[in-house]
Design a protein around this nucleic acid. Structure first.
Length: 86
DNA sequence: ATAATGACGTGAT
DNA sequence: AATCACGCCATTA
């Protein structure tokens, strides 16, 4: 059975380099428009390198967290990938 | 199964 | 612009 978490991971894996999606958008793409927070919970508990979870940001323009190096690391990676919003 | 936790979002102060 | 209060929801204990 496909869990919500698996679908979320699938979505995030598709985000191209240099682009970003908000937690809300991911939630919507995964079929749960109101589960933005749930997406965060999944990302937090995900340690798979293959998933570019650093490309998922908050709707209010802030970065959101990162369990593998902190928000500082996240910002650095995004900048390196061409996301100059920050 | 229930309660606590928090990488969220929106609207009200 | 910054904070607060609430609702929402998957994960974890």
């Amino acid at each position: 059975m496909k869990t919500f978490a698996e679908r979320v991971r699938a979505v995030v894996r598709k985000i191209s380099k240099g682009k970003t999606m908000t937690y809300a958008q991911v939630a919507r793409a995964a079929g749960r428009p109101r589960a933005a927070r749930g997406v965060g919970a999944i990302m937090r508990s995900n340690y798979d390198e293959r998933i570019p979870c650093h490309r998922v940001v908050r709707s209010d323009g802030k970065l959101g967290g990162y369990n593998r190096g902190g928000t500082g690391r996240k910002r650095t990676i995004l900048k390196k990938e061409g996301v100059y919003e920050w």
